[in-house]
Design a binder for these strands. Structure first.
Lengths: 185, 185
DNA sequence: GTCTATACCACGATAGAC
DNA sequence: GTCTATCGTGGTATAGAC
């Protein structure tokens, strides 16, 4: 499954062939069907596991309760990035391959995916409730923007060069305070 | 080419078949080869055109010289989004399909793509030079974050429901000032 | 649980008639 | 400029031996 996830990650759904996966692990293509009923089922398993990892990371970040809103958010960003980079390709597959997956797969996965995203929207909502987040930001848009930065980073962030804690901090900081100089107008 | 671009956009490189493209325009697959030497060349043409559109949009935004830095940035964001949404699928293909394109295609396109991205980094650099942008932001990271939000929006922004000017304004505002409440710490 | 062998299909691409 | 016809390849998936 590791090999399959890596292939889905870099080659996409249609670009991944069961023959190549089997070859990579020293098996024949037909043998894979002892473990999985179809290519779609294999991908579904991988995507499911990816979301499980994300949820576990979210749980851990949530349990480290902090009074400071910015620190709480940084912790969650760090957790999401860790899921993306430190738990094999399962989570990252989501970012790159969900889009082109067959409709049957998407319909099944989108449910748990939405649940994960809802946790983030709720997190931002709670930050707003305590007055840490500006009252006029659209929670939905804010979450999408944050996800966009975190998820797109799989295409350009080199984890061998940069520290993940620093990266999470700088992303959160930019999201939180913006890039403008000086005091807020 | 419109049909081909739409297919690359929604199905990806491997998921797009020349037979389907031909069918959609009432032709036979073989006939396409009178116009294009290969599938790769077809995709290359489309990606090239997408970048041309983006550059033209950037030019137009740059020509509308403004003293106000935030307004200048908003204009460029509006232009990039317009390229994404108002010029057929050519620009959007870039966001979704470049990643899984064959290496030969990517190698050719990445040059002009990098040039476009460099224009944005230069734009942000000039904003910092006039003191509008905080001195301690990483220009490269800031550009990537902004691109992440703009480009990912093709997957969730519904242009039939939202006005593009408003959308550009809200994205820029969030990027510029952040989401935190109250005065900057 | 993995193998061999294979069915069946869709793909990109080419050749040559019209 | 489009057609028909076809080649060769590689895809998912199945059947049955071991």
């Amino acid at each position: 499954m590791d090999v399959a996830a890596a292939s889905f990650l870099s080659c996409g759904y249609e670009g991944t062939s069961l023959r190549h996966i089997a070859d990579s692990v020293g098996m024949k293509a037909g043998s894979l069907y002892y473990h999985f009923a179809s290519k779609d089922e294999l991908l579904t398993h991988i995507l499911r596991r990816g979301i499980d990892v994300m949820n576990a990371a979210f749980d851990e970040a949530a349990s480290a309760a902090t009074a400071d809103s910015a620190a709480l958010l940084t912790g969650h960003v760090r957790a999401h990035l860790a899921a993306l980079y430190e738990n094999g390709p399962y989570t990252a597959v989501h970012v790159t391959t969900f889009r082109t997956a067959p409709e049957t797969v998407r319909r099944e996965i989108v449910i748990i995916r939405d649940a994960y995203e809802a946790r983030w929207t709720a997190l931002l909502g709670s930050l707003r409730a305590v007055g840490a987040l500006s009252a006029d930001v659209d929670l939905h848009l804010a979450r999408l923007a944050l996800f966009a930065v975190m998820n797109s980073s799989v295409e350009w962030f080199d984890q061998t060069r940069g520290n993940l804690d620093d990266f999470a901090a700088v992303i959160t900081r930019q999201f939180w305070h913006g890039v403008a100089a000086g005091p807020r107008s």
